[in-house]
């Protein structure tokens, strides 16, 4: 395994852990459903995508890389759709968005 690829894998892993950490902090600390759905859909998808990209790089050109690539594609399709479904359900149920000055929920 050459140096550039190894370096790229480490960078991708570090980026993935960083974005997953940000999304975890967001899910715990943000004040209401909509903001949390937002962090869950965007930041978490990016973090997961970066880590799976590192996995793809680590596999190289083996046949297993197809499964890892499929994983990447499906994470990018399903995660935002799930967040959309949740946000829509919250709206249908009449949960008011948090505005500045409100109490944290």
């Amino acid at each position: 395994m050459n140096e550039i690829r190894l370096g790229a894998i480490f960078v991708l892993l570090a980026g993935g852990v960083f974005f997953t950490f940000v999304s975890a902090v967001g899910v715990i600390r943000l004040p209401d459903v909509y903001t949390r759905a937002h962090t869950a859909s965007q930041t978490d998808t990016l973090g997961a995508g970066l880590v799976v990209a590192a996995v793809v790089l680590a596999y190289g050109v083996e046949t297993e890389v197809i499964k890892a690539l499929l994983l990447l594609v499906f994470i990018f399709i399903t995660n935002p759709t799930a967040a959309h479904a949740v946000g829509r359900a919250a709206y249908e149920e009449g949960i008011e968005p948090w505005t500045k000055g409100d109490e944290r929920r």
Partner: peptide
């Protein structure tokens, strides 16, 4: 929701 239906059609 059109988005969910499309995603399910793909998945």
């Amino acid at each position: 929701s059109e988005i969910i239906m499309t995603a399910v059609r793909i998945v």
